[in-house]
C-alpha cells in the first residue's frame, strides 16, 4: 500500500467514523444481556415430579452415555450419599442429569428435584472461559466445544450450580461433560430435549423462556397455596433458561437460594474495568517516577551524577 492510498484510506475511515459518531441517533445499548428473545427454556414443576427417572434414562440414551451403575428404575440411588453423607448425587461425566429425593421438613411427601445445566442467560462458564469454548445459542442452549478446551476447569469453578463435570479419567482427551439441551440432535430441529419428551408427568414444560415465565405465574395464580411464591431461575444469576416451581422452600430441596440476582460476570467487571486503566496509566506514572527519581539523583551530589546516565545510555 502506498503512502497516499493509506492516507486516503485513513481519511475515508475518519470521515466515515465521524459520520457515524455525529449521526443524531438516540438508541442506547442495553447495559445487560437478558437472553435471546427467541431462547427456549424448560419449566420444572417440582410438585409434579414423581422420581421415575425417565428423564435420566432418556438423557442417557440420547447422549449415548455409558451404562449407569444401577438401572434407571432402581430407587436405591435415592439413598446414595457421598462425602460422609453430606452430598447427594450430582451431574457427572456419565450422567448429565440426575434426580434426587428430598424429605421436606414438614414431613409431607418426598420431593424430587432434577439437576442439569440451567442454561443461564449470561453463563458464568462462558464468561470465565479463556478460549471461548462455550456458546449461548439463539435457541437458548449453552453448548461447549471440546476442540479448543485446554482443560483449565475455570468453568467448573465459575458455575454457580456446580453443573459441569470433567472426564478426569481420560488421559489424552479429557473434556467438560454437561447437558447441552440436546442442542445438536433435537433443539435445533425444534424438538424438546430428550428428558422433556420422556417425562410422563409433564413436570418438564418446554417452550420459549418468556412464555414459560407466564405459565409459571399462571400456575401460581390458579392454584393458590400450592407453590412457594418464587420462580427459581427467573432472576438468579441473571436468569436461567431452566426455571423451577416448588411447593416447599427451595433451600430445602437442594437449591442455593443465596445466589445473586446479577450475572456472575457483574462481579468480575470491577476488576476487568481496571485493566485498561492500568495499561493506560501505569506507563506514564512509573516513567514519571523514574524521571523524578533521576532528576533528584542528578542534583543530589556530583558523586552520583554520571551513574544513571551511564547506566541508561
Amino acid at each position: 500500500m502506498s503512502k497516499i492510498s493509506r492516507r486516503r484510506f485513513l481519511a475515508a475511515s475518519v470521515a466515515g467514523g465521524a459520520a457515524i459518531t455525529l449521526a443524531p441517533t438516540k438508541k442506547a445499548l442495553a447495559a445487560t444481556f437478558e437472553g435471546y428473545s427467541e431462547g427456549m427454556g424448560v419449566l420444572v414443576d417440582l410438585t409434579r415430579c414423581v422420581g421415575c427417572r425417565s428423564c435420566e434414562a432418556a438423557c442417557n440414551k440420547e447422549q449415548k452415555l455409558p451404562t449407569p451403575d444401577l438401572p434407571f428404575d432402581d430407587p436405591a440411588v435415592f439413598d446414595q450419599t457421598f462425602h460422609g453423607g453430606t452430598q447427594k448425587r450430582r451431574t457427572t461425566e456419565k450422567a448429565y442429569t440426575v434426580v434426587n429425593r428430598y424429605e421436606p421438613k414438614d414431613g409431607s411427601q418426598p420431593v424430587y428435584r432434577k439437576i442439569q445445566c440451567n442454561h443461564c442467560n449470561e453463563p458464568a462458564c462462558l464468561t470465565s472461559c479463556f478460549v471461548n469454548a462455550y456458546t449461548k445459542t439463539r435457541e437458548g442452549a449453552v453448548v461447549y466445544n471440546s476442540k479448543v478446551c485446554v482443560g483449565c476447569r475455570n468453568c467448573m469453578v465459575a458455575c454457580p450450580f456446580n453443573v459441569p463435570a470433567y472426564s478426569y479419567s481420560s488421559a489424552f482427551n479429557p473434556m467438560i461433560k454437561k447437558c447441552i439441551f440436546c442442542h445438536e440432535t433435537r433443539l435445533k430441529q425444534g424438538l424438546p430435549p430428550a428428558c422433556v419428551a420422556g417425562c410422563p408427568q409433564e413436570a418438564l414444560t418446554f417452550g420459549h423462556r418468556n412464555s414459560l415465565i407466564k405459565i409459571a405465574r399462571e400456575r401460581m395464580r390458579h392454584q393458590p397455596g400450592r407453590y412457594i411464591d418464587h420462580i427459581y431461575g427467573e432472576k438468579e444469576v441473571g436468569g436461567t433458561a431452566w426455571i423451577y416451581l416448588s411447593a416447599v422452600p427451595f433451600e430445602e430441596v437442594g437449591f442455593d437460594t443465596t445466589l445473586q440476582k446479577e450475572p456472575i460476570l457483574s462481579n468480575v467487571k470491577d476488576f476487568l474495568s481496571t485493566v485498561p486503566m492500568v495499561l493506560a496509566i501505569w506507563p506514564a506514572l512509573f516513567s514519571g517516577f523514574h524521571l523524578l527519581a533521576k532528576h533528584k539523583e542528578n542534583h543530589a551530589g556530583d558523586d552520583h551524577q554520571n551513574i544513571d546516565e551511564e547506566a541508561h545510555k
Binding site: 449407569p68 438401572p71 434407571f72 440411588v77 462425602h83
Partner: peptide, 14 residues
C-alpha cells in the same frame, strides 16, 4: 432404563 446395569459396590463416580 438400562435394566442390564449391574450394581457394583460403591456408587456412581463423582
Amino acid at each position: 432404563f438400562r435394566a442390564d446395569a449391574q450394581a457394583p459396590t460403591g456408587g456412581n463416580s463423582h
